[in-house]
């Protein structure tokens, strides 16, 4: 009888301790709910602590091998909980707010990434780095990005302002509007994004309007696995009269600026190289 009682209280006690575990100061089971945060986490050296990512997390290569827990706007609650994470990293740029609330109601720790603009990136990195316990790494990464930004800003002080267009997808025509990292980069380089007047980040722009804006440089971003030159034939023909096309100032660049992450520096350099 006494033995039974001891065993019972042990079992009960253990189950209590399992559910009342205190949050680890150094999270070792991290789930990332957006490609941008996944990239940053890997860049901060926390890649091996990541146990789950979205199906869109394709950078770096190792991320593709991680367990998938769903999409950006519809991650699977069940899958997340089943992996028993001690930190779930989310973003306001794509994840539903309800996910954060539900996870917290269930006692899981979350970190919400809020940086949207280029200028907010360094502090964003610092914040995330502290949350996962690598403040030093974060400081280093953030510092480098800030230096790069300042360097660029200094270099372009004397250049002429040009009209620039960044095409995200040729047909249907999607361009990079305000509020994107691309727009921030363009302005950083001292130029004008012709689609900055649009109301949304990736607007469907009127071709007529673009022609009137007369962009002097056109960037075409890389789509996944596509031959961008081939699919852009049509739109470039339509834009044949704009200065950029006439003077052959059309550059095909990578998708480094699509996400506010560690590759933005690279992306900015790409843009700068083309404009020169």
């Amino acid at each position: 009888m006494k033995k039974l009682f001891i065993i019972l209280s042990l079992v009960v006690g253990m189950s209590y301790s399992v559910s009342a575990a205190e949050p680890a100061l150094l999270p070792t089971r991290i789930i990332s709910l957006s490609p941008a945060t996944t990239e940053i986490l890997f860049a901060l050296g926390a890649g091996d602590r990541i146990i789950g990512v979205t199906s869109f997390c394709d950078h770096p290569e190792e991320a593709k091998k991680k367990q998938k827990i769903g999409g950006l706007s519809n991650p699977s609650l069940e899958a997340i909980v089943a992996l028993k994470p001690d930190l779930v990293v989310m973003t306001t740029d794509g994840n539903p707010q309800e996910v954060d609330e539900r996870l917290r109601t269930m006692g899981l720790r979350t970190y919400v990434w809020t940086a949207r603009k280029l200028a907010e990136l360094p502090d964003g990195i610092r914040g995330l780095a502290t949350a996962i316990g690598v403040s030093a790494q974060g400081e280093r990464m953030a510092g480098e990005i800030e230096k790069s930004i300042n360097r660029t800003r200094y270099k372009v002080q004397s250049t002429k302002k040009m009209n620039v267009l960044y095409i995200v997808w040729p047909e249907p025509l999607l361009v990079a509007g305000p509020g994107t990292a691309i727009d921030d980069a363009i302005r950083l380089l001292g130029h004008v994004n012709v689609s900055a007047k649009a109301k949304t980040s990736y607007p469907r722009y009127s071709i007529e309007e673009l022609i009137r804006e007369a962009p002097e440089v056109v960037f075409i971003g890389k789509g996944s696995g596509m031959d961008m030159q081939a699919v852009s034939q049509g739109i470039l023909k339509k834009l044949a009269t704009v200065p950029a096309v006439r003077n052959n100032k059309v550059c095909y660049v990578s998708d480094s600026l699509y996400r506010l992450g560690p590759r933005v520096v690279q992306g900015i350099e790409e843009l700068a190289a083309c404009i020169k």
């Binding site: 189950s15 909980v81 028993k84 539900r102």
Partner: peptide, 12 residues
């Protein structure tokens, strides 16, 4: 397991 109970009650 505790996790499964959590899933069953809170999600399913």
């Amino acid at each position: 397991s505790a996790t499964e109970r959590e899933i069953l009650l809170s999600i399913r």
